[in-house]
């Protein structure tokens, strides 16, 4: 009988937790207003916010025709072009 009781006891907090989630039910983002602070942003920022790691205008640009060796090849596209 002991384990049955312990199982029951564990279920109670579970239900309470469920109810709590149901009542709150929304993230910090859901109540946010314009200019109203970070919302759901946990603040994982350094002094520099890096936004340009995807920059490469030459990515996968095929190099054909006259003077192709003089063309600028980007690092990212070199592998694909050589195939």
């Amino acid at each position: 009988m002991g384990d049955k009781m312990s199982k029951k006891r564990t279920r109670c907090p579970l239900l309470v937790a469920l109810l709590a989630v149901g009542l709150i039910g929304c993230s910090p983002e859901a109540q946010r207003t314009r200019g109203g602070g970070p919302g759901a942003d946990p603040g994982n920022v350094d002094s520099v916010v890096e936004i340009h790691r995807g920059a490469d205008p030459g990515y996968k640009v095929p190099l054909t025709g006259a003077g192709r060796d003089d063309n600028i090849r980007s690092d990212a596209s070199r592998e694909d072009v050589s195939r």
Partner: peptide, 14 residues
Amino acid sequence: VQSETFRPMFKWWS
């Protein structure tokens, strides 16, 4: 782990 601040990364709503 938050990569910039090294605090634990946890969002209970996500």
